[in-house]
Design a protein around this nucleic acid. Structure first.
Lengths: 206, 206
DNA sequence: GGTTTTTATTCATCGCCGTTGAATATCCGC
DNA sequence: GCGGATATTCAACGGCGATGAATAAAAACC
């Protein structure tokens, strides 16, 4: 009976999906994850709600795909790994700050308030685990690669946390260059191949 | 007509309200803000959902009252600052892990999911700024004290973030001793007095 | 070129959520 | 002992994310 149902004329698939993702991204950036409902996304894309489920499976799926469009699968990290190992810490830190702060960068417009819910945090967790830790460990290689990459990820996560997610005045106030200068020694320490721990450090404290 | 309706016998007000807040607190800590529904709180307190609205106004009101019960401050950081400067990073890291993991420790019961709420985040921000950054900067002294303390706080914030608030498998899986061993080089790098930056590092990247 | 399968879309509905208004039973000041 | 304040349950509302069925176009098949 109804007319609007069924596959529309001449629409080759991906245009609609891309339009949904685009509108969703704009709304997520403006109102955060919670503040964006599938129904408003559907309305913005002039589409039925259920189509979002069809294309993206769930709201989380939509969020993941919509946000990964422009943040480009973090090729920034990959690029940072190439080049002089002596200045690797500086390049990694720049990659992170530019991810947020470059005009086209993925998370530029994300309000701290938009970052607080569990689903968004999960995205960062997966980003850090897969894109950052995995690639750094692969790049380092050797006996302690995982330990060194873990330490590096903790430092990078600290930068993200104290500058963007839950900004401390003293970190957020730094320029990108200041961040590089201030945090590079820590990251360099994290990446350094560990000497077998001296006994003095093991008979540590309490 | 109905039987259970109306004010019950002999109940003077605040017992019920306190019971609700208590159950709510436990559930918020266990499942986070989102993961806790008013209906489960009501069920745990053996009360109708609407009574929560009556006593607390809204879910946020309930959260605020339930969580504001206590906040303990710790002197662990101060103690860590005393002693051999050579092993200061190790002591600082131990102070943080023991804050969470010691049985009586202040944040032991905080589930990661509780991070969602703005008030909880503010507690961590103030903890890092006042308790950690301030004390470390005071203790270090000298020309670059603030920069060095900022870097240290970023590393410590990274530990808190990647281990407790938004746990990455590779960080959360470490023992407290592993954390010390893995992260101490990064923290040591952060605390090192910076040499005036060589030009090679400033003409850095892109 | 007709038939079948796959793809893209809307429609209808489900169960849960937080909130709100009304009903009702007890307590308390007068 | 009566009238308002208080404490509680009941019932419903609108909005959310999800899902299954219906349907129409396109693609694949023979």
């Amino acid at each position: 009976m109804n007319k609007n149902r069924g596959r529309p004329r001449g629409r080759t698939a991906p245009a609609t999906k891309a339009r949904i993702a685009e509108k969703a991204r704009a709304l997520f950036l403006e109102h955060g994850y919670q503040g964006t409902t599938l129904r408003t996304v559907a309305a913005a894309a002039e589409v039925d709600v259920a189509l979002i489920g069809y294309h993206f499976g769930s709201k989380q799926g939509l969020f993941g795909e919509a946000m990964n469009i422009r943040c480009g699968r973090s090729t920034a990290i990959v690029r940072a790994l190439e080049g002089d190992p002596a200045t690797l810490p500086e390049r990694l830190i720049d990659a992170v700050t530019s991810l947020w702060e470059e005009p086209g960068g993925g998370f530029a417009a994300l309000e701290p308030a938009a970052l607080r819910d569990e689903d968004v945090l999960r995205v960062f967790r997966e980003f850090l685990e897969r894109e950052v830790l995995g690639r750094i460990a692969d790049h380092l290689g050797g006996r302690y690669a995982t330990d060194r990459a873990t330490a590096a990820v903790a430092v990078i996560g600290g930068l993200i946390f104290t500058r963007y997610l839950n900004p401390l005045a003293s970190v957020a106030a730094l320029s990108a260059g200041d961040v590089r200068r201030t945090l590079a020694p820590a990251l360099r320490g994290a990446l350094r191949t560990p000497r077998p721990a001296p006994a003095a450090l093991l008979s540590h404290s309490a």
